[in-house]
Design a protein around this nucleic acid. Structure first.
Lengths: 248, 248
DNA sequence: CTGGATAATTGATCTGGGTCAAAGTTCGGA
DNA sequence: TCCGAACTTTGACCCAGATCAATTATCCAG
């Protein structure tokens, strides 16, 4: 109740936790000031829909904290997640007025939004924003293509291992500083959301997680907390060329 | 033999068939001139590999004519196509020195290549190139996400129908002018390549094509030429919300 | 502490698409 | 014209993962 209002929101870009990873990463002080003029924050609670596919979208923005999902659904209900939005990820497309995907907050989410029209103008004037957005989009395209391999060619077990790999990598890159003897993290998704990401059913997800646990590839504390005793083993299970280690 | 040399290659951007769709689409005369200084053409024969994943890549470029594929392979040989490169599509990534995907010419291909380093510099000076590349990358990201739904959630029959839909759309958008009473086109891919695109085996591809033929959804002349008597029917089979017609 | 909603596990069974195998087609080159 | 390689089709069988169904946590709200 009124949780939204009590949440501390950064007002100043200087304090912003995603300052150096988001679209604004390369902006100079003056550019930030311009962005600041068209920016506003929005909070969403876990489970809340940020945008429905087909809806008009008057803003673009960045996830500041929390996790959201990008999904596409068929008329008969089959659903495929097409993107996982983590802090600093960009939402929306300049030049497009309607959303094509459902965006749903998986946890409580804070978004830094920019009014679309002014943002588009800004983009044509400040190459730093456009350039950073290109870079981020190219990264997302790589991720999407990587995911196509997972969806098209991997077994259920490999799919789960691949997902765990990705989540572990992300956690390692964000929360390092912590001693990471053997890494551990919380699953930010329900079994059903994982199934939608992986093109599986939630039953299969559950079974494969159990199997990986029985085989000692992962250790579970509760249903959400995962410990990985041997990351290379996990990568082998994912079917990746695993000569990269955590930081590939 | 020596086919390469006999092929007419456009030297002048003004004559170029992809002038208004490729990265250079928005360039002014002076920008074209700059591009021209770092550009060269390369020909590839059907079946030839343009780049191997992992190889050093000193150029980026556009497909001028022909069709190429972007694929990613696992160590054990499982292969997933992650992109289909048609005329005007961009190859390579500015700022990246090694290829991550195999690029293979499916038909004879002409590419317009730019030396990578100078192209990167050009990009930071000419917003028209960077902006166009962003636009193209965003389109490709959408296509990749669309494809994730196909790979993750569609049945074999729907996958085939989806692929036919895409090829038909492309042909309609390129080759219109022709009376398109009922549309017809050639499949630019072998059954195996289709399988790699769709996350299926070539046997399943063959069976599903036969099934669609038996059910009158498509008509085959030979093994490669397809006629679609009723495009809406085909879109229904693809499981798409099909209230868009050919030009959705 | 209790009822009931949501999330997760596990079991039994079924099936779409994979696998293995054998022909049939097509086409360029000798 | 005929051969051989590459491509395609079709059949028989099998299995990974879907489907259907029943429990079992978990965790608020009352």
């Amino acid at each position: 109740m009124l949780k939204e209002e009590t949440k501390a929101i950064p007002r100043d870009c200087g304090e912003c936790p995603i300052r150096h990873r988001a679209v604004c990463a390369r902006c100079e002080a003056d550019e930030l000031a311009q962005l600041d003029r068209v920016k506003y924050y929005r909070n969403f609670e876990a489970g809340q829909t940020v945008i429905w596919a087909g809806d008009r979208m008057d803003f673009v923005g960045s996830v500041v904290s929390g996790i959201a999902t990008l999904t596409r659904a068929m008329e008969d209900g089959r659903t495929q997640m097409v993107g996982l939005l983590l802090p600093s990820d960009f939402v929306g497309r300049p030049g497009r007025e309607r959303a094509v995907y459902d965006v749903v907050a998986t946890s409580d989410v804070v978004m830094c939004c920019f009014r679309r029209k002014p943002f588009e103008e800004l983009m044509s004037n400040t190459p730093n924003i456009a350039h950073r957005l290109l870079e981020m989009t190219l990264d997302e395209l790589d991720a999407a293509r990587e995911w196509m391999l997972v969806l098209g060619r991997k077994t259920a077990r490999e799919k789960i291992a691949s997902l765990l790999t990705i989540i572990a990598r992300r956690d390692a890159s964000l929360a390092y500083g912590k001693a990471s003897g053997n890494l551990a993290f919380d699953l930010p998704l329900t079994r059903e959301a994982m199934a939608d990401y992986l093109g599986l059913t939630l039953e299969t997800v559950s079974r494969q997680i159990s199997a990986l646990r029985k085989d000692g590839v992962i250790v579970l504390q509760g249903k959400r907390h995962v410990t990985v005793p041997d990351f290379n083993r996990l990568m082998e299970e994912a079917g990746d060329d695993c000569d990269g280690g955590l930081l590939a």
